[in-house]
Design a binder for these strands. Structure first.
Lengths: 196, 196
DNA sequence: TTTTATTAATTGAACGTTCAATATAAAATA
DNA sequence: TATTTTATATTGAACGTTCAATTAATAAAA
């Protein structure tokens, strides 16, 4: 038989190829062929490992969400100070971009599609609420409780808004870093303004 | 069947049907059939008036951008005070939503697609920069110049971020109004903080 | 009658899925 | 060790569907 234990390798290859294809061609322009060609594999393999195109799309979103979660967990532990933890949260949300240029476009495509796909919408909600609650957890250690929740909401919106504008204007790495700095400044100003 | 002078009527019918279809089915799920069916017309009429599907898509985006522009111009004149003008800008950006529920989803679909379509990207950039410069114009009358530009950038991001989060979480009208209030509060707090 | 508006039928390309055939590493055998 | 068998990873052509675009036909207005 062929080399055994290829499944995890192929799955990762196909997920990477999906990110690349959606980043380059959009979700509209991404086909079974565009993905399998980028992966250097045949088109049939997608149905074999993911049941079909839709299964691969969803697996790719889960992979991106998991990457985002891990990149925060890698930086933070129980001893991390609240303000430092807030900075790490912002860094994690801008980090995926710096690693790969096509990831941001892919992310945005999935967001838009989540309006018309129940499973994608579910995954998007998990991610959105995780950002807010991660922020709220640290703000509560710095601000009076009545301000902490709203600070988390506003910070989440500011992060998403800065991120979105950077993606849409097809910013380079420097402009992305600038947006990251603005987000950090904003969180610091909230702490100064309402800090206990 | 034909009556004379139908062109403007048909164009508007088809643009409305496009907003409805993209709002309901997404850009992926929208076909010339889904549009023409909603409009109660045949599919061939799309090529007749817009050259093809892509032409209709672009005309629809232009119509949305023009609506946004007009809804601000309708409220503002030279005598409008700077702070009041800032509030009107925010209201205009949230207003399209309140008129029609499907408009917001449609807008988001077009944003995502603009990453992979040159003309859509150009239109998106026009809109994005108009928001920033509209905000900057009023901030410059209220804040020292060095703070005004940054306040405009931050406010634009906050508006887009709050708007995006409201759309993605499939918020109702009340939640949208709440986001609008948060955006207004934020702009007011910028004025208090850096105001001359 | 000529022109304009519209439709309905048709076309060919592109799509996702399926599946019989193939290739090949591992296991069994001798 | 060399050979055969077995099991599974992978392919890619074929299929049915769906799409955007085109076409020819039709009906009303001028």
């Amino acid at each position: 038989m062929p080399k055994v234990g290829m499944e995890p390798v192929r799955r990762q290859q196909l997920i990477d190829a999906t990110i690349a294809s959606v980043g380059e061609l959009g979700l509209q322009g991404t086909t079974i062929n565009s993905i399998s060609k980028k992966a250097g594999l045949s088109s049939g393999i997608i149905s074999h490992y993911f049941g079909g195109k839709q299964g691969l799309i969803e697996a790719t979103v889960r992979h991106l969400l998991s990457s985002l979660k891990q990149s925060l967990l890698a930086q933070v532990d129980e001893s991390t100070l609240p303000e430092q933890r807030l900075m790490y949260i912002i860094e994690a949300n801008f980090a995926l971009v710096q690693q790969r240029a096509d990831t941001t476009r892919t992310w945005l495509s999935f967001w838009a599609q989540s309006m018309h796909d129940a499973e994608l919408h579910r995954l998007q909600n998990v991610n959105s609420k995780r950002l807010t609650s991660n922020l709220a957890f640290s703000f509560k250690q710095l601000l009076p409780k009545e301000h902490a929740t709203q600070a988390a909401q506003l910070s989440a919106a500011m992060i998403d808004g800065l991120w979105l504008r950077a993606v849409l204007s097809q910013s380079n790495k420097d402009q992305f870093n600038h947006s990251e700095q603005l987000a950090k400044q904003y969180v610091k100003s909230l702490i100064q303004q309402y800090g206990a």
